[in-house]
């Protein structure tokens, strides 16, 4: 059984059909990409998966459970984590505090623990810090843990977001255009990081990305959507040679790169 199974997913905004009868499967331990031109509905798919948008019809089954009616925090609790296309860090907080947020759903101290500082609360705080530091170390910015998130350069802010998502200890990681705004060197490091996340942490990755070079390097299988409809799926070679994809996507990509 696939880790994630999307069946006939449809999302409408009034007359606009942002996602149209989309079906796809993500197998455990894989890296899969979702590509498509601007406005194709890629981010909408992620927003449906993570509970931010209510799909109009269809079904999404994650680890054998339907997540159609689940709230975002419960979906995260089940083991799905995401990053945002436009960075959504807690800007006025430190890098460390940002990453500690990921551990919220794996811990449970509340009022009494906080006020009485019980043994279990202290142990939990220690664990939160340890995991957060481990995640920061994994993405390579442990030395910046005491910086205010807003004071970091853009590339490092991206890494804080990955560390934060990893700290929720996910089974499936959704990355929305993680390479946007990164330079060549940072992109190479990202490819390496994604492979390590999959191999060392056993996290399945579902990726939205515009950088075709990066997508083809890292993912074994690619889904292409246009106007919310899936127009192709397959290996990078199959997708590249598909005339519908060339028409819908690759043709447009050149004009985009020119901008």
């Amino acid at each position: 059984m696939a880790l994630l199974d999307i069946k006939d997913l449809t999302l409408r905004f009034g007359g606009l059909c942002a996602v149209n009868q989309l079906s796809l499967e993500i197998e455990e331990g894989s890296i899969r990409s979702l590509i498509g031109p601007n406005g194709a509905g890629k981010t909408c798919v992620f927003n449906c998966l993570t509970g931010f948008y209510k799909p109009s019809s269809g079904d999404m089954v994650f680890m054998g459970t339907s997540i159609m009616k689940k709230k975002p925090h419960l979906i995260t609790h089940m083991g799905m984590a995401r990053t945002f296309q436009n960075l959504r860090l807690f800007k006025q907080m430190t890098v460390m505090e940002n990453v500690m947020s990921g551990m919220h759903c794996r811990t449970n101290a509340a009022f009494a623990g906080a006020v009485l500082r019980t043994q279990s609360q202290k142990a939990e705080e220690k664990l939160i810090r340890e995991i957060a530091e481990e995640c920061l170390d994994f993405v390579g910015i442990l030395d910046k843990k005491n910086y205010m998130a807003k004071n970091l350069p853009y590339g490092d802010q991206r890494r804080v977001e990955w560390a934060r998502a990893l700290a929720t200890q996910p089974k499936l990681l959704l990355l929305d255009e993680p390479a946007a705004g990164l330079n060549k060197e940072e992109k190479a490091r990202l490819i390496n990081l994604m492979r390590r996340i999959r191999d060392e942490r056993k996290v399945t990755i579902f990726l939205i990305e515009h950088d075709m070079g990066l997508v083809m390097k890292v993912s074994e299988k690619i889904f292409v959507i246009d106007y919310g409809v899936k127009i192709a799926e397959g290996t990078s070679k199959e997708v590249r040679d598909n005339p519908r994809v060339v028409e819908a996507y690759l043709g447009k990509e050149e004009t985009e790169d020119a901008v």
Binding site: T50, F52, K71, P72, H73, T76, H77, A81, R82, F84, R88, L89, F90, K91, Q92, M93, E97, M100, S101, G102, H104, C105, R106, T107, A109, A110, F111, G113, A114, Q121, E124, E125, I128, R164, T168
Partner: peptide, 23 residues
């Protein structure tokens, strides 16, 4: 505390907070 940080996360960015599993 965990609770105090959760309040701060929500104040900073509600959507990001719920994506981090905060109710």
């Amino acid at each position: 505390s965990r609770l105090g940080r959760a309040w701060e996360y929500i104040r900073e960015d509600e959507d990001a907070a719920s994506a981090m599993g905060i109710n």
